[in-house]
Write a protein that binds this DNA or RNA. Structure first.
Lengths: 142, 142
DNA sequence: ATAAACTCTATAAAAAAGATAGGCTTTTTT
DNA sequence: AAAAAAGCCTATCTTTTTTATAGAGTTTAT
């Protein structure tokens, strides 16, 4: 299951994409629109900013905005940023790999093999599908 | 990520399958062999028993054993039993479905759509691959 | 200057995961 | 019949993770 953090991030990004023509969007606006605690959302948007996905502007008229077009933001990137590994086991994770404790040889491990296949099938979708694919409205900046 | 509980369950089931010819296997043997806390493992094996996957025998000469052949035990079944939903979002879970809070119409929700595809791709593997597929040794009772 | 709005770090509360404890029941052996 | 072996069951505890909050700091527009 994706954490609330990741789910909120998706909703916030959707809102930003769908209102990209309106200039910087207030945290408070997104929080209200998507029913997210404003302080919690603040942290999430900051992470997205630090990851180079969002830009921000301080002071009056400030807010957050996308730094890339929706189709340049793969869903896998968001999940990894906020939730960490996508794979079901540490030993098949591409970005958060950890060796199994009791496993002598991963090359001969049946679990490793199957979970690697699950990872591949999942990533095939999550790395090609982007923010653009989860928007409700059609946005012109595609 | 799969929980330790599910990972331990897989390891225990593998041990049981690979020693199916030796009659009931002690919890303590599995625990030692797989480096799992004996008391924690006890709970896990009990859940597997209550789910009809394992049988047990009390008293001297007792222990646990598979009630089905490895190829009759899909990996998805074990994961659902110990970890719950396999899907990434509650609103696309087949077995643990919950409606989204803010979602007006799932039929038009892009996230729902993509996560549904991820679920399908994952289940296609986890429901066809079985305990048999993660065994190291070849076991005759296939 | 002042107010608006994001920034940063710390902390707290709640939930989940992981682990342990101990008495109970069943079965086998003596 | 008693004792020992082994699983059964339920409760509790500890640790970690997740979720949420707080508040002082910084930047920018007016």
């Amino acid at each position: 299951m994706l954490s609330k953090k990741t789910q909120y991030a998706f909703h916030a990004l959707i809102h930003l994409a769908e209102n990209a023509d309106k200039g910087p969007i207030l945290i408070s606006e997104i929080a209200q629109e998507k029913s997210i605690s404003i302080k919690f959302l603040e942290n999430i948007l900051l992470e997205l900013k630090n990851a180079g996905i969002l830009g921000s502007k301080k002071g009056k008229g400030g807010g957050y905005y996308l730094l890339k077009t929706p189709k340049e933001i793969p869903l896998a990137k968001i999940i990894r940023l906020l939730d960490g590994a996508i794979a079901l086991l540490p030993c098949v994770s591409l970005n958060y790999y950890e060796k199994c404790e009791n496993c002598r040889d991963e090359a001969v491990c049946g679990l490793n093999d199957v979970m690697g296949k699950v990872r591949d099938a999942t990533l095939k979708i999550l790395e090609t599908k982007t923010l653009k694919d989860i928007l409700t409205r059609n946005v012109s900046i595609l």
